[in-house]
Design a binder for these strands. Structure first.
Length: 277
DNA sequence: ACGCTATCCTGATCGC
DNA sequence: TGCGATCAGGATAGCG
């Protein structure tokens, strides 16, 4: 589910609710998601002050006072429900982990498909965690330039769409935002990554940055079950120009072409066969 | 060495 | 209304 804008939105809500507070209670409702929860998750977090929140790729990092960081990945269907403790409401289905603070802030991790993950890592060594150490560049950082993107694409013998989904090269993009970025850049998704010119890489860099920035500003894309931490829906799905719009007229080339859908490495790709070359 | 695929799960939706 | 098939925003292990 969540790509960079959704994870960033969730992380900001989590930060607003939890930063500076002390964790009073941790409830672990099952032993694992994609991987087992750390056996000492509860004892490592309870009683700790929440120092700060960060995002790396699609991971949320919560740093606490004992030098540990909780890593959280939402997978495909993960949501973080923020609220107050003691409301006596029925817990939602698939709420696998609950954090509560001394000030009654409550965060529940709901993940029906259980593709998400939670782990602990020493804050000083976050970057060496096996899931973080191989990650590519942050698309909203200064490293994300056309020339650098161009050089990254030269090393992959896959379609450009597949390469942009590869978190070892550039992080944060998922199926939606890759489709949208290629559409706005007028690049055909099946093109070999190595065929991307510098000029096209410049366009891609510009649009990737723009799309992610716009999506964060509108609170992410709400499809199916994604909502922001405060329960409101994001609004970026209304700005999708191709994703999920198979058969609809292309919004750019006004020639009667409609949005096509193909499958690439098992995932749907949406594009305009006329204006993406 | 690299790239493709099958796979982990549940739930929503679609066609019959 | 019911039922089976299909699809879903991710990322890995394992295979060729």
């Amino acid at each position: 589910m969540p790509e960079l804008p959704e994870v960033e939105t969730v992380m900001r809500g989590f930060r607003t609710a939890f930063e500076g507070q002390r964790i009073r209670h941790v409830t672990v409702n099952r032993p694992d998601l994609r991987w087992p929860f750390p056996l000492d998750l509860r004892e490592r977090l309870e009683g700790q002050e929440v120092l700060s929140f960060h995002r790396r790729a699609k991971y949320i990092l919560m740093r606490v006072g004992n030098g540990m960081s909780m890593m959280l990945h939402l997978g495909m269907s993960g949501r973080l429900l923020l609220g107050q403790s003691g409301m006596n409401t029925t817990p939602p289905r698939h709420e696998h982990l609950v954090l509560e603070t001394e000030n009654e802030a409550r965060a529940g991790l709901v993940d029906p498909r259980r593709f998400g993950m939670v782990d602990l890592v020493p804050t000083d060594h976050e970057d060496t965690h096996r899931l973080l150490s191989g990650l590519g560049i942050e698309p909203l950082s200064d490293k994300m330039t056309g020339p650098y993107l161009h050089s990254l694409m030269q090393s992959r013998r896959t379609p450009i769409k597949t390469a942009l989904l590869d978190q070892r090269l550039i992080v944060g993009l998922g199926n939606i935002y890759v489709c949208e970025a290629l559409f706005r850049s007028h690049i055909h998704p099946t093109r070999a990554a190595t065929s991307i010119t510098l000029q096209e890489a410049n366009r891609l860099a510009t649009f990737i940055r723009a799309i992610l920035t716009e999506a964060i500003a509108s609170g992410g894309s709400s499809l199916r079950d994604y909502v922001q931490a405060d329960g409101t829906k994001g609004g970026f799905q209304d700005l999708h120009l191709v994703y999920g719009r198979e058969g609809e007229p292309c919004s750019y080339c006004a020639t009667g072409y409609t949005v096509s859908r193909i499958t690439q490495s098992g995932r749907s790709t949406f594009y305009c066969a006329n204006c993406q070359k």
